[in-house]
């Protein structure tokens, strides 16, 4: 069930310059939320809500966590909210990541602000997960400690070589797959990155789920605004990121569309 309400922010910090990390106390949302789902967050003074992926869920504490980047004036407004302020959200929205059985291994790959949605799913697997994170530069390399605390293997890449592997996540992915075979890959990031990952994953025949984004209005599947081109049962159709996704089986997505 979708819930809309104003909930208190219980923690807020800057994860890096322009990237904020907030925790919201919303037990009824936390109870139902799954890794990979998202929330529609109201930005005061702006007409449309901002779709922001759920970074992590603490069902016991009844909280969900968002790590988001200031992309424009709307997200800037959301970033002005502080601990103790109320935040207006609709959640949990969309389809989350599929979680495999307890003996399976996962590889999570995030690029930039596509890294935060990997926290929740990586935690589902703990030591059975490896996480490849790609960032522009070391100063914005966020969330690595979260993955380590959860027991995941972490592989860091930066475009400029200021930390970890110098290069894109696809370089690290190729290398990783030379010696290891995860049962599933989860990926979120820019479209060219996702396409690169999916090409490699197909070569190694590894099931892959990708999390997509698109300009969105309602967030619940009514307005049909947030389309992505997909193939289902051999037929090309426009699916909707908010309801059919944001997580899609990579085989369904037309990355050239």
């Amino acid at each position: 069930m979708y819930k809309q309400g104003k909930y208190p922010i219980t923690e807020k910090c800057a994860a890096a310059k322009g990237i904020f990390d907030i925790t919201v106390k919303c037990p009824e949302i936390a109870a139902e939320a799954q890794a990979g789902q998202f929330a529609q967050i109201a930005a005061e003074g702006f007409f449309l809500r901002r779709p922001i992926s759920i970074c992590d869920i603490d069902k016991e504490a009844g909280t969900i966590r968002f790590v988001f980047e200031v992309r424009g004036k709307g997200t800037e407004k959301i970033a002005e909210l502080n601990k103790g302020n109320m935040i207006d959200i609709i959640a949990p929205l969309g389809k989350g990541f599929k979680v495999l059985d307890a003996d399976k291994k996962a590889l999570c790959i995030g690029g930039g602000i596509g890294v935060p949605p990997m926290v929740g799913i990586a935690k589902e697997y703990g030591e059975r997960a490896a996480v490849i994170s790609g960032f522009r530069t070391s100063a914005v390399a966020i969330l690595q400690e979260d993955f380590k605390t959860a027991g995941c293997e972490t592989i860091l890449c930066t475009d400029d070589g200021t930390a970890g592997i110098h290069g894109f996540v696809t370089v690290a992915l190729e290398e990783y797959l030379q010696s290891k075979k995860p049962d599933i890959i989860y990926a979120c990031g820019p479209m060219p990155m996702l396409k690169g990952i999916v090409d490699i994953a197909e070569k190694y025949r590894i099931e892959t789920q990708v999390s997509l984004e698109q300009r969105m209005a309602c967030g619940v599947g009514a307005c049909l605004g947030c389309v992505c081109r997909t193939v289902k049962d051999g037929r090309e159709i426009y699916s909707h990121v908010c309801k059919d996704g944001p997580v899609f089986d990579s085989k369904e997505v037309d990355f050239n569309g």
Binding site: F47, L48, R215, A217, V227
Partner: peptide, 14 residues
């Protein structure tokens, strides 16, 4: 099938 995306753009008050 409708039009290709993006299909949504925010505007002042709309």
């Amino acid at each position: 099938q409708g039009n290709p995306g993006p299909r949504i753009a925010e505007t002042p008050a709309g």
